[in-house]
Amino acid sequence: MSKAPQTVPVSVIIPCYNSERTIRNALLSVVQQSQRPLEIICVDDCSKDRTIDVIRVFAEEFSEQSIRIERMPGNDGPGSARNLGWDMAKGDYVAFLDSDDFWHPQKLEFQLAVMREHGCFGSSHRRTPDLPGLFDETQAKAQEISISTGELLFRNRIVTSAVMLKNQPGFRFRSGMRYCEDLQLWFEILFAGNSFVYLDLPLSSLSGPEEAPNSLSSAVVKMEKSKQGIFRELRRKRRISVPQLFAASGFSLMKFVFRRMQGALSIKAY
Results as ranks from 00 to 15, higher is better:
49 D>G: 02
192 A>Q: 00
251 F>E: 12
138 T>C: 01
228 Q>N: 07
149 T>P: 01
153 L>M: 13
267 I>Y: 09
247 A>G: 13
158 I>V: 15
256 F>D: 14
121 F>Y: 15
201 L>P: 01
40 I>R: 02
25 N>E: 14
87 D>A: 13
47 S>M: 06
1 M>P: 09
141 K>S: 13
86 W>C: 00
176 G>E: 03
128 T>K: 10
92 D>Q: 14
19 S>F: 04
118 H>W: 14
147 I>M: 04
105 P>R: 06
104 H>Q: 02
154 F>L: 15
234 L>N: 08
136 D>A: 06
95 A>C: 10
101 D>V: 05
241 S>F: 09
64 E>S: 09
102 F>N: 12
159 V>E: 09
218 S>I: 12
190 L>R: 05
173 F>I: 00
165 L>H: 09
234 L>E: 06
191 F>L: 08
170 G>L: 05
28 L>T: 06
233 E>V: 01
201 L>R: 12
147 I>G: 00
181 E>I: 00
20 E>I: 07
42 C>K: 09
19 S>G: 13
5 P>M: 11
157 R>F: 09
43 V>K: 08
45 D>V: 00
160 T>S: 08
62 F>G: 06
95 A>Q: 01
38 L>A: 13
241 S>L: 06
194 N>H: 13
72 M>L: 13
212 A>Y: 13
151 E>A: 11
128 T>I: 09
3 K>I: 07
87 D>M: 09
7 T>C: 11
261 M>S: 08
1 M>Q: 06
91 G>L: 04
260 R>N: 11
6 Q>N: 11
182 D>Y: 03
99 S>N: 08
78 P>C: 08
98 D>A: 05
106 Q>N: 04
113 A>F: 03
134 L>H: 10
261 M>C: 12
32 Q>D: 15
91 G>D: 02
60 E>N: 08
36 R>Y: 03
4 A>L: 11
211 E>Y: 08
87 D>T: 07
154 F>T: 07
256 F>N: 14
115 M>Y: 05
253 L>C: 06
134 L>G: 07
217 S>F: 07
178 R>Q: 10
123 S>D: 04
60 E>S: 13
95 A>L: 01
107 K>L: 12
107 K>Q: 06
237 K>S: 15
266 S>D: 12
64 E>H: 07
205 S>P: 03
262 Q>P: 00
157 R>H: 10
165 L>Q: 07
1 M>D: 10
151 E>K: 14
241 S>K: 07
220 V>K: 14
122 G>Y: 01
75 N>F: 08
68 R>W: 05
2 S>T: 07
116 R>P: 00
201 L>A: 03
192 A>L: 00
248 A>S: 15
177 M>A: 05
161 S>T: 10
219 A>V: 11
108 L>N: 12
